[in-house]
C-alpha cells in the first residue's frame, strides 16, 4: 500500500491529511502556535497515529502553507494555491470559483476543469478581510469562535458597522455592546461587513459557477450565509473546509509517488 501525506502549515492552524489509493485515511488540525517547526512535526505525528502509521510508512510528503519551509521532513514544497485548486477540484469537480477564508488572508481564485488555478486575488494584508477579523470580535464578545456562526443566525436586527477595519470594528463593537446591542446582532452585522469585503474580491475575479468556500472561515455558517446573500449564489461547502489545502497537497504527493514508482519500474 502506498501512503502519502499533505502538510499545510498555515499562519493560524496547521493541518495534515494522510491518503492511500485516493482516499483520506486520517487528518489532524491543530493551532500553528509560535514554533512552526515543532508544530509541523506534531501535527504530522498526530495524523499518522490516527492512521496507525509512522513516518517510515509514508512514501511521499508534500508541504504547503505559510510555514511550509519548516516541515523539513517533507519531500517537496508546493504553493498553497496549487494545493487548494487541486483539493477543491477533487471534492467538487464542477467548481470554477473558490473563496478561501484563511486566518491571515482571504483569497478568491478560479480553477479550470483540471484543478489548475487560472486567476486569483488576495485581500489586503490588514485583518479586515480575513478570519482574524472574526477572532478579534469573538474575543471582544467573549464567545467561542466556533459558536459565532450559529449565534449570528439568530439575529433579527443586524447592527450596521461604519468601518471595514478590524481595529476600528473592535472599538465599534465595544460601543454597540455599551449601547445594549445583542451579541447576535453585532455578529450578523460584522458578517455582513466581512461578506461585502469578500464580495468585492469575488467581483474582481469574476464569479463563475459553481462556487465553493473553504478555509477556517468557512466553518462559520453565519458568514457563509451572509456571503450567499451578498453574492446571490449558493455556495458549496466541504464537510471539513479547513483541510482542503492539505488534501490537495496529499493528492499531489500521491501523483508524485506514482510517477516515482513508474520511473523506478522503467529504470529497473
Amino acid at each position: 500500500m502506498v501512503y502519502v501525506a499533505g502538510v499545510d502549515i498555515g499562519s493560524v492552524f496547521s493541518k495534515v491529511v494522510v491518503m492511500a489509493k485516493g482516499e483520506i485515511v486520517s487528518h489532524h488540525i491543530m493551532p500553528s502556535g509560535g514554533n512552526y517547526k515543532l508544530t509541523a512535526e506534531e501535527v504530522a505525528k498526530k495524523a499518522l497515529t490516527k492512521a496507525k502509521l509512522s513516518f517510515k510508512d509514508i512514501d511521499y510528503i508534500v508541504a504547503t502553507g505559510y510555514g511550509a519551509a519548516n516541515a523539513s521532513f517533507a519531500n517537496e514544497v508546493v504553493t498553497d494555491l496549487s494545493c487548494q485548486g487541486r483539493g477543491v477540484s477533487y471534492l467538487f469537480p464542477s467548481v470554477r470559483t473558490v473563496i478561501d477564508i484563511g486566518g491571515q488572508f482571504t483569497r478568491v481564485f478560479r480553477v479550470n476543469e483540471r484543478g489548475k488555478v487560472t486567476a486569483f486575488l488576495q485581500s489586503e494584508k490588514c485583518a479586515a478581510g480575513s478570519g482574524r477579523f472574526l477572532q478579534v470580535i469573538a474575543k471582544v464578545l467573549q464567545i467561542d469562535l466556533k459558536d459565532i456562526g450559529k449565534l449570528s443566525l439568530k439575529s433579527k436586527n443586524k447592527v450596521d458597522f461604519n468601518t471595514g477595519c478590524a481595529v476600528f470594528a473592535e472599538s465599534e463593537a465595544i460601543s454597540r455592546i455599551a449601547e445594549g446591542a445583542l451579541k447576535e446582532d453585532i455578529l450578523a452585522g460584522l458578517h455582513r461587513t466581512l461578506a461585502a469585503k469578500i464580495q468585492s474580491l469575488v467581483e474582481r475575479v469574476g464569479l463563475e459557477p459553481d462556487c465553493a468556500v473553504v478555509g477556517g472561515g468557512a466553518k462559520d455558517i453565519g458568514l457563509v450565509s451572509s456571503l450567499e446573500e451578498s453574492l446571490a449564489s449558493k455556495l458549496l461547502l466541504p464537510e471539513e473546509p479547513q483541510i482542503v489545502t492539505a488534501l490537495g497537497a496529499a493528492l499531489l504527493a500521491e501523483e508524485k509517488a506514482a510517477s516515482i514508482k513508474v520511473t523506478n519500474l522503467k529504470g529497473g
Binding site: T79, D80, L81, S82, G85, F109, N112, R114, K116, V117, T118, A119, F120, Q122
Partner: peptide
Amino acid sequence: DAFIDTLEAV
C-alpha cells in the same frame, strides 16, 4: 509563487 502557478496553468 501563486501567480507563477496561474501562468503555468494558463
